[in-house]
Design a protein around this nucleic acid. Structure first.
Lengths: 96, 96
DNA sequence: TTATTTGGTTTATAATATAAACTACTTTAC
DNA sequence: GTAAAGTAGTTTATATTATAAACCAAATAA
């Protein structure tokens, strides 16, 4: 009846991050922070996890002397997001 | 941008339970167990939490000498579920 | 030059989910 | 009638997660 919900995405913050990345394709750390309203620490931890799962790529460089962290979704991340949404619909649409 | 996802419902098992109860209005413990595939212990804990949140009512009686636990969704539970679904849609539909 | 800000990471703690172990009985088989 | 197995759960212990607080390194401002 109920399909598993990918634990990597069934997290409010990681889902928000991936949701943003699916639409923008590339985003800075601070953009993710501002859009989600989460703390920097939390963002840092969650993007690491998403990277370890190969759902996103993280590029670190410098811009105007400051460190700059850029995140992009991977094809695997897109697939996982689509699967998650599909599974989720089983939970939120009337059934029986 | 992203609305809070009610933590009481942002749990795979509790969401599945509430999802079932929204459609059937009344369900036995074992029905919830069978439909969700979760362990009895997990169901037991989660329906207690849903009851404490006033999202469901729990009635305990006996049937053919055996204990029987029946769960029903409350109006508050229905509202919470609808709100949750609404919030969730912000996460899963393309935006920007 | 020391104070503050930027852009993060690491670490500690609180909250959650889950399974394993247990309780309390009932039924069945010997 | 009593031992074994089954029903219907609850409680407790543990592993996983999420989150915030504390920290770090460098840059800029006062």
């Amino acid at each position: 009846m109920f399909k598993e919900l990918d634990p990597m995405l069934h997290s409010q913050l990681r889902l928000a991050i991936v949701s943003l990345l699916v639409s923008v394709k590339e985003a800075e750390f601070t953009y993710l922070k501002d859009e989600t309203g989460a703390s920097a620490g939390n963002i840092s931890v969650q993007i690491q996890k998403l990277k370890e799962a190969d759902y996103i790529d993280i590029e670190k460089k410098f811009k105007d002397n400051y460190p700059l962290t850029i995140c992009k979704i991977t094809p695997k991340g897109v697939d996982a997001f689509e699967d998650y949404v599909k599974s989720l619909k089983q939970y939120i649409t009337a059934k029986k």
